[in-house]
Design a binder for these strands. Structure first.
Lengths: 227, 227
DNA sequence: TGCACTCGGTGCGCTAGCGCACCGACAGCG
DNA sequence: CGCTGTCGGTGCGCTAGCGCACCGAGTGCA
């Protein structure tokens, strides 16, 4: 889409701004294409940019010991990657990575700091989003502790799909396993269950959702609460 | 400090404020005594007050299904209970409960909103604290997912002890089990291990820490990173 | 003093998920 | 074409933690 419309070129935080604040920001950001697995920020390193995803789907990750990093949140077109900048930090203690490639609006961290130096619609939006994100992380902490893998997997697929406009999701069992904090074989198992029920289909790294309603039935209650 | 001295009448967020901002707040807050197990706010219900713990230790909890609520964060004299007020919400999606009884400074939510309407040292402190809390919740999500119970228990005891000035911690296996998201018997087991190594002592709902260094050795790496 | 209750300690069968190993199918590439 | 690497599927023994049941020792209260 050259002069694209639809949800894929849209960020909810920005869309909620009044026209003048929106215009002021628009002069500063740069539309870019995010590649899958790209790291948007790394724990401990300076935050250069913040990203408003429009089409891309990103993940907040946290690594402990020498395990693959665990997903602790999902950020799509409803959010912002780089919230610590708004919170006054110069580096984050967690990471952010691109989960599904797509478009985003990139803004230098310094710009965001400047635009949040006094009260206004942007800081207000970001405060609200912080509350939402905190709730999301808290929920995923509880979910990861209590719910069986198949339910968590179903929830994760639904959440990813909600943020994505494409009808196929390119992701391997390996990646999913890391994000969900389990082994690859465990994902193969759980995905096998969903597959046998014709809820999803898998073909060498590309997943299709056949039956959303069926997935929602299997997914833990956490899904309905977030969405 | 008029009568009581020491860290127990001290809140780090407030102490970091410049004298004038501190004085302005001091006219508004009310020192109170928090009872153990008291609920400071409940998911979905209006946030009437925020609390700056001074001596008390509080827990952020999140309930899923019909299980006992899981602890997702610890708030002592370094923090604030009721952060969603600052973030612009009128109710929180999680709960806060008193873990160890003690003193706190209570401020009507409306007062905090007023004092954060424009930029200043207080909002800045609170933004930084939000970043810290987010990191804490993220870490506890990963910790709860990966680390064995004895390590998590040790970490939890150390963290609680860090916030408490008392040398004995009144808490039952039952409560700990709920907060850690496991069964009571599992806590009995893990506590038994620590007890046999003479790291802690238990007597009908009152816990003593004998050997902090030993506990730190057993605790997961999450502890050192937070502290 | 005696009773009811809470608290913690223990045993037992069961399950989800781990770690490992292996295997077939399907790319991509020289 | 065949080689090599990735991706997903499966089996097996093992462990942490679950759910249940039971028990003794304190503790508070009548």
């Amino acid at each position: 889409m050259p002069s694209p419309s639809g949800p894929s070129m849209h960020n909810r935080l920005l869309a909620a701004l009044p026209p003048d604040a929106y215009a002021q920001l628009k002069a500063q950001w740069e539309p870019i294409e995010l590649e899958v697995a790209e790291h948007l920020h790394v724990p401990g390193e300076p935050l250069r940019y913040v990203y408003f995803p429009t089409g891309a789907v990103t993940v907040l990750i946290y690594q402990v010991d020498h395990r693959p990093p665990l997903a602790v949140g999902l950020v799509g077109f409803e959010g912002l990657v780089g919230l610590p900048v708004f919170l006054g930090a110069h580096s984050a203690r967690w990471g952010a990575q691109v989960h599904l490639a797509g478009t985003a609006l990139r803004l230098p961290a310094e710009r965001l700091r400047q635009m949040c130096q006094e009260e206004g619609p942007l800081p207000e939006q970001l405060r609200h989003y912080t509350d939402t994100l905190l709730a999301q992380v808290i929920q995923s902490a509880a979910c990861g502790r209590f719910h069986v893998l198949s339910a968590r997997l179903a929830r994760w697929l639904l959440m990813t799909d909600d943020c994505s406009s494409a009808d196929s999701l390119p992701m391997t069992h390996q990646t999913l396993a890391g994000l969900l904090g389990v082994r690859r074989e465990a994902v193969s198992n759980a995905a096998g269950v969903l597959q046998r029920q014709r809820l999803i289909g898998y073909r060498r790294g590309v997943l299709h959702i056949f039956d959303r309603t069926g997935l929602e039935a299997i997914a833990c209650t956490c899904y309905r609460q977030t969405a």
